[in-house]
Structure formats: structure tokens, C-alpha cells
Amino acid sequence: MSPQLAWLADHLHHSDRYAEWIHSQFSYEYAQQPLADWQREFAAGQSNGDWPCLVALDDEQLIGGAALARADLALRPELGPWLACVFVSPDARGQGLAERLIEGVCQEAKDRGWPRLYLHTQTQRDYYAKRGWQVLENFQAWGNEQWLMVRDL
């Protein structure tokens, strides 16, 4: 049976764990924010519209997710909404799960009437480019080159 996709707001008991994965995976972005603070912000974001997250559950076990963020890049506050917090646990990779999650977030954004989504990535530019995302610009942040990308919905 393939993993089920659901909104984290309906499975909030997984929120702290997912926030922990993101805090660890993208530690360069969260260097100034203690984990507990991020966990509180992320959990609140499931109901206030800041970080609604689509998660993948395999028999109620959390194995991945992706968020539809209101804002995700302080350098570009005029842009949004964003695809953010994309993560699949290592033992669940290679099954197209990230792509399902990304498409689910894109569909939700489209259903809400948004014409495009943005993302920024440090290492996955080619992955997203193969899936219809276009590079808007590259920039320096968190001590590395980053890519700002957009996808029309």
C-alpha cells in the first residue's frame, strides 16, 4: 500500500517531529532559532496559514512532507507563496514521494487561486528544473549559493 498524503493540521501529533527534521536538514537556515521555538512556530503555522504542511504517512508513521508557506525568504518578502520544508525520510526515498508531495502542494496553491509558487534551494536546482521550475536568480545566503525558482501553476 502506498503512503497516504494528508494535511498535518489533521495529524498534529506529528508536528514536532517534522519540525525537528526540517530544523536538522536545513540547519544553516535555523542556526539562530532554537528547535523549541521553531517547533512552536511550525505547529502554530498549521492553523494560522503560515506553514500548512502536506505530510506522507505510511500506516500512520510520518515519512515525509512539504509545506505551502506564506513567506520563506526574508530577502524577498514581496514573493510568495512558497513551496518549503520538502523532506522525505531517508528510508522512504526513491519512490517518487517527494514528487507526490510537491504536486499536492502545487495543486492546493492552484485551488486557492494562486498563479505561481516560489522556492529556494541550495542543492536541488536540477531536481526542480526537471519538474517545471525555472530559475529566477541565484544569490548568496547562509554562506552558500542558493537558487530562487518559480513555477507557474
Results as ranks from 00 to 15, higher is better:
Arg70Lys: 14
Glu41Cys: 09
Pro81Glu: 02
Pro90Asp: 13
Val105Arg: 01
Asp72Arg: 05
Cys53Lys: 04
Ala71Asn: 13
Gln61Trp: 06
Gly65Lys: 07
Asp59Arg: 13
Pro52Gly: 12
Ala67Asn: 07
Leu73Trp: 00
Gln95Met: 05
Ala44His: 11
Arg100Cys: 01
Leu54His: 10
Leu68Ser: 08
Ala69Val: 12
Val86Pro: 06
Asp72Cys: 11
Phe42Met: 11
Glu41Met: 07
Asp59Gln: 15
Gln61His: 14
Ser47Gln: 14
Ala56Asp: 02
Asp50Leu: 13
Gln46Ser: 12
Gly96Met: 01
Glu78Trp: 01
Val86Asn: 05
Pro90Cys: 07
Asp91Trp: 07
Ala44Ile: 08
Glu60Met: 12
Ala84Pro: 00
Trp82Ala: 00
Asp50Val: 11
Ile102Tyr: 02
Gly94Cys: 07
Gln61Phe: 06
Leu54Ile: 13
Pro90Gly: 08
Leu57Ser: 04
Ser89His: 11
Pro81Asp: 04
Val88Phe: 05
Ala66Pro: 04
Cys53Leu: 14
Glu99Met: 03
Pro90Met: 05
Gln61Cys: 12
Trp82Cys: 00
Pro90Arg: 09
Ala74Leu: 12
Val105Asn: 01
Gln95Asn: 07
Trp38Thr: 04
Val55Glu: 07
Asn48His: 11
Gly80Phe: 08
Leu101Trp: 01
Gly104Glu: 01
Gln61Ser: 14
Leu57Asp: 00
Glu78Asp: 15
Cys53Glu: 04
Leu83Trp: 03
Arg93Leu: 06
Arg76Ala: 10
Glu78Met: 09
Arg100Trp: 02
Val88Glu: 06
Glu99Thr: 13
Pro81Met: 01
Gly64Pro: 09
Arg76Tyr: 14
Gly94Arg: 04
Gly65Glu: 09
Trp82Arg: 01
Ala44Gly: 12
Gly94Pro: 05
Glu99Val: 07
Ala69Gly: 11
Ala98Leu: 01
